[in-house]
Amino acid sequence: MKSFTCIIEGKVTGGNFQSWVLDAATQLELKGWVRNIANNKAEILVQGTEEAFGTLQARLEAEAPVPDMRPVKASVIDYDKEHDHFEIRG
Score class of each variant (00 low, 15 high):
residue 2 K to A: 13
residue 2 K to G: 01
residue 3 S to Q: 08
residue 3 S to W: 02
residue 4 F to G: 00
residue 4 F to V: 01
residue 4 F to L: 01
residue 5 T to H: 02
residue 6 C to D: 03
residue 6 C to S: 11
residue 7 I to W: 01
residue 7 I to K: 08
residue 7 I to S: 01
residue 8 I to H: 00
residue 10 G to N: 06
residue 12 V to M: 05
residue 12 V to R: 01
residue 13 T to Y: 04
residue 13 T to R: 09
residue 17 F to C: 14
residue 17 F to G: 06
residue 17 F to P: 07
residue 18 Q to I: 00
residue 19 S to C: 02
residue 19 S to K: 14
residue 22 L to V: 12
residue 22 L to Y: 15
residue 23 D to S: 08
residue 24 A to C: 13
residue 25 A to D: 06
residue 27 Q to C: 09
residue 27 Q to V: 02
residue 28 L to V: 09
residue 29 E to C: 14
residue 29 E to G: 14
residue 31 K to M: 12
residue 32 G to K: 05
residue 33 W to M: 12
residue 34 V to L: 02
residue 34 V to H: 01
residue 36 N to A: 14
residue 37 I to T: 15
residue 38 A to Y: 12
residue 38 A to K: 14
residue 40 N to C: 12
residue 40 N to E: 14
residue 40 N to H: 10
residue 40 N to V: 04
residue 41 K to I: 05
residue 42 A to M: 07
residue 42 A to G: 10
residue 43 E to D: 11
residue 43 E to N: 12
residue 44 I to V: 15
residue 45 L to V: 10
residue 46 V to C: 14
residue 46 V to W: 00
residue 47 Q to E: 11
residue 48 G to M: 07
residue 50 E to D: 14
residue 51 E to C: 07
residue 51 E to F: 01
residue 51 E to Q: 12
residue 53 F to D: 02
residue 54 G to A: 14
residue 54 G to P: 01
residue 55 T to Q: 07
residue 55 T to M: 08
residue 57 Q to P: 04
residue 57 Q to V: 13
residue 58 A to M: 03
residue 58 A to E: 04
residue 58 A to G: 03
residue 62 A to P: 00
residue 62 A to V: 02
residue 63 E to T: 10
residue 63 E to M: 07
residue 63 E to R: 11
residue 64 A to K: 06
residue 65 P to D: 05
residue 65 P to F: 01
residue 66 V to R: 03
residue 68 D to S: 05
residue 68 D to E: 08
residue 68 D to G: 03
residue 69 M to R: 12
residue 69 M to E: 00
residue 70 R to I: 05
residue 70 R to T: 09
residue 71 P to R: 06
residue 72 V to E: 04
residue 74 A to M: 09
residue 75 S to N: 11
residue 75 S to Y: 08
residue 75 S to C: 09
residue 76 V to P: 02
residue 76 V to C: 04
residue 78 D to G: 09
residue 79 Y to F: 13
residue 79 Y to W: 11
residue 79 Y to C: 06
residue 80 D to M: 12
residue 81 K to V: 15
residue 81 K to E: 15
residue 84 D to E: 12
residue 84 D to M: 08
residue 85 H to C: 12
residue 85 H to R: 12
residue 86 F to E: 10
residue 87 E to M: 10
residue 88 I to C: 12
residue 89 R to P: 06
residue 89 R to Q: 13
